[in-house]
C-alpha cells in the first residue's frame, strides 16, 4: 500500500517542514518514505509544495501526479491540486484564508481555521503544526503518537518551543475530530 500526500501553500507557511515531520513519523513507523520538494524556478510569493510518499515496499517513482491526499494551505494550491487527488483521499483546507470548496464530492474534505486556532494559542507560527495534526488525525496515515515524537525530534534543538507545538498538535487533533 502506497500513500502520497501533497502539501502546498505560499512560501513561508512552513510547507516543507510539515512534509519533513510527516516523513520522519512515517520512517519511525517503519514505512519506506520519500520527501520531495518543489525546487523549480518558483516565484517569490508563489506556490511552494512538497510531496511525501510512504509505502510498505521500496518506493518506485518519486514523481506523483495523483496524490492520495492534499493539504492545501492557500487558495491557489487548492485550485491547482484538488482535481488531481485520488478519490477517497483527504483534502485538508486552511479555511482561515480559503473561502472556496474543494469542488469534489468523492473525497473527505476537512476544513480547519488554523490561523485563528494558532492565534488563540498565542503564536500564529504554529498554524502549520495544527494543520498537520488535523490532517494526520483525519487520514490516520501514521500513528498520532509518532507524529508527536517527530515534532519533538524536529524541535530538539529549540526545546522551549516543544510545549507550544504539543498544544498545537492537540488543537489540530481536536479540530479534525470535531468537523
Amino acid at each position: 500500500m502506497q500513500n502520497e500526500v501533497q502539501f502546498a501553500g505560499f512560501g513561508g507557511q512552513g510547507i516543507m517542514l510539515m512534509g519533513q515531520i510527516l516523513a520522519q513519523a512515517a520512517m519511525q513507523a517503519g514505512f519506506e518514505v520519500v520527501w520531495i520538494p518543489s525546487y523549480g524556478p518558483e516565484m517569490r510569493g508563489g506556490t511552494a509544495y512538497c510531496t511525501v510518499v510512504t509505502g510498505d515496499r521500496p518506493i518506485g517513482s518519486p514523481i506523483i501526479r495523483n496524490p492520495r491526499h492534499l493539504v492545501a494551505m492557500n487558495r491557489p494550491s487548492l485550485e491547482k491540486f484538488a482535481p488531481s487527488v485520488k478519490a477517497g483521499g483527504v483534502i485538508f483546507i486552511n479555511s482561515s484564508i480559503i473561502s472556496i470548496d474543494a469542488g469534489r464530492d468523492d473525497v473527505d474534505v476537512l476544513k480547519v481555521p488554523i490561523i485563528e486556532l494558532a492565534r488563540d494559542l498565542g503564536n500564529v507560527k504554529v498554524a502549520n503544526i495544527i494543520a498537520l495534526a488535523a490532517f494526520v488525525a483525519r487520514s490516520k496515515i501514521v500513528d498520532f503518537a509518532l507524529l508527536e515524537a517527530a515534532v519533538k525530534d524536529k524541535f530538539s534543538e529549540k526545546e522551549k518551543l516543544i510545549p507550544l507545538n504539543m498544544k498545537a498538535l492537540e488543537e489540530g487533533r481536536k479540530a479534525a475530530l470535531k468537523s
Binding site: 520519500v34 520527501w35 520531495i36 525546487y39 518519486p62
Partner: peptide
Amino acid sequence: DGLIGQMMEP
C-alpha cells in the same frame, strides 16, 4: 540527478 540531490529518504 537533481532528484537524488533534493529528495529526502531514510
